[in-house]
């Protein structure tokens, strides 16, 4: 009954991007529209949830229309509507979830609730086929997770952050260095011309654990900056950035590599906004070179939040008839079963 090359209209509003996309067969991108609110939140030094929600409701239908127009499809062509159900900001998620439900109802289409992280992983499937087993490192402002997959739609969480997400640590350290929001790309850029002179701690946690912890590192950096300011010593921002980044990347790369070897995976998929980080990309390439494990990092526009990735992940659920009812709700703390 279900189409082989189904066309899915997908929606993503979990944080500060209002996004809609049309995806065919889980692998082919017909359109991918993202209305970012980056400039709006910049003046507040971070995402203000209520502001984000207000912008989502103003953008949603226009973004949807653009996605349909660019894909050159009508509702007669659409086989299902997919939406990020969680995790994320609840007020922001609610705009997308209720839009998706209304459209599914209006056109009698199946509705698919998608986990945001599943989306990040499946962004890669728009670039190349998956080969199982695979490992995915998801790094963003809200996430640092290692997920093992034996098959499509089968997610096993083998490691996650116990405190701050990697991207969150970047933003906080950037703030301490008085860099504008969002701080991640700024630190990455500064670090390119600095050296690891401070030797901040690397937090590997207990033997055999694939969990992460970045709050100790963040505190070490902030304390160091505080000391220097009190003693009126000059702060070499390039070196602070390089030292902080070296610690984060050492831990991310080493743990990911060990997990990939232990689980004998064929592919390592890197996902989430932090995968845009130049140093992380370079170090992963170095480490996985000659390992026999294929390193997959999608282009930047698929790394940051978008709806195409939600449509790609939804394709798997579509073929499993994993549909939601009209009582689907936003779930800000949604777990990956």
């Amino acid at each position: 009954m279900t189409e082989q090359n189904e066309i899915i209209l997908a929606i993503e509003t979990s944080c500060d991007e209002t996004a809609a996309a049309v995806v065919k067969g889980g692998t082919e991108l017909l359109s991918n529209v993202v209305a970012t609110q980056m400039d709006i939140h910049q003046k507040f030094g971070g995402v203000v949830p209520e502001v984000a929600s207000r912008h989502h409701i103003e953008q949603m239908t226009a973004v949807l229309e653009q996605a349909m127009d660019e894909a050159d499809v009508t509702f007669d062509d659409i086989d299902a509507v997919a939406v990020t159900q969680g995790p994320g900001l609840v007020g922001a998620l609610l705009v997308g979830v209720n839009a998706a439900k209304a459209i599914a109802y209006a056109h009698d289409l199946p509705l698919i609730g998608v986990h945001h992280i599943a989306g990040h992983i499946y962004a890669n499937r728009l670039e190349q086929p998956f080969e199982f087993p695979l490992l995915s490192l998801v790094v963003s402002g809200g996430h640092t997770e290692l997920i093992y997959m034996n098959d499509h739609g089968d997610y096993q969480l083998i490691g996650e952050t116990r405190d701050d997400a990697a991207g969150e640590a970047y933003d906080k350290v950037a703030k301490a260095l008085e860099l504008p929001y969002p701080g991640g790309p700024q630190i990455d850029q500064l670090a390119q011309s600095g050296k690891d002179t401070y030797q901040f701690p690397r937090s590997y946690l207990e033997e055999g654990s694939y969990d992460f912890s970045f709050s100790g590192l963040k505190t070490a950096v902030i304390n160091k900056l505080h000391q220097k300011r009190q003693k009126n010593e000059p702060i070499d921002r390039e070196n602070v950035a390089a030292s902080f980044q070296a610690s984060v990347i050492d831990v991310l790369v080493n743990k990911t590599y060990e997990a990939a070897l232990e689980h004998n995976v064929k592919q390592l998929i890197v996902a989430g906004g932090v995968s845009a980080n130049q140093s992380l990309r370079a170090r992963l390439q170095e480490k996985f070179e000659g390992s026999g494990i294929e390193l997959c990092i999608p282009p930047l526009y698929l790394c940051t939040d978008n709806a195409a990735m939600i449509g790609a992940a939804a394709s798997i659920q579509y073929h499993q008839s994993d549909f939601a009812g009209l009582d689907l709700n936003a779930n800000p703390g949604l777990m990956m079963d």
């Binding site: 209720n98 209304a102 056109h107």
Partner: peptide, 19 residues
């Protein structure tokens, strides 16, 4: 309620737009 308003508005706008 801000959230309540957006739930209704998102549903209504999406219904009107898509129909």
């Amino acid at each position: 309620s801000y959230t309540g308003l957006r739930i209704g508005m998102s549903s209504a706008k999406s219904l009107a737009w898509s129909l």
